[in-house]
Amino acid sequence: MIPAAFEYKRAGSVDEALSLLREYGDDAKVLAGGHSLLPLMKLRLATPSVLVDVGRIGELSYISLDGNEVAIGALSRHRDLQTSELLISRVPILAHVAGLIGDPQVRHRGTIGGSLSHGDPASDLPAVILALGGTLVVRSAARGERRIEAGNFWRGFLETALEPDELLCEIRVPIPEGAFSYQKFNRRAQDWAIVGVAAQANHSVAVSLVNMAATPVRARAVEEALSQGASPADAASLAAVDLDPPSDINGSSEYRRHLATVLVRRSLEEILGG
């Protein structure tokens, strides 16, 4: 399988990338590691006429401490996250989950910015950034920088708040205080989660769900029940409230709703005790 023809533009800096995106806008897609975009292009499900390759912009590859937050350059690869001493010690859920994405070859190429911008609800990182209450820093040539709360970033299936001329540059996450759990349920090691759960204890407990809707979602009913003193099992029974997850070859909607309650219970028991 070969992608449809496109015009290839390589950006050497953020400014150059923004200027290319201003010029080509709607006709362009941004190429980072390519591990979400290229498979879609090979299947001709995506046929951009211009590819803006940002993969070599060194200034977007960093993981650094900034006050009580960690700032992550959008081009940091999953392997970088997995092995970052800073993340392992301060935001361990992110290092742990990065190590569960795909397989080693995928983690050598895929980037956090690419994963979040692609916005696949079956991906691991969007739900984790959502549970951490992260902020996405995006830039455009026309309007400069704006910051988007993770809760407002994913708008629909593969649809985000990014405008066609905008580039996701940095992800900021507050350093959490408590324990975490990530439950990824799949049939084969390298697959996407059929359902996944990211739970992070902080002042309260944040729970978000993978592959339970068109976007990653917070399990608000579970969080509220916990804050009112419900047991993990009772809170977890509310995991699929108001959700209508997709049916596909890996499981029916009803099966996913069942999995969500089981996996949320396991995650809460892991961080709060049974």
Binding site: L31, G34, K42
Partner: peptide, 26 residues
């Protein structure tokens, strides 16, 4: 040809990648 099987794995700057999911220009 869908970045699943790993038969096309090569080293790129010393790290394994699936060469069916990397463009030559990359």
């Amino acid at each position: 040809d869908t970045s699943s099987c790993g038969a096309c794995t090569v080293l790129m700057d010393g790290e394994s990648v699936k060469s069916c999911t990397v463009l030559a220009v990359q």
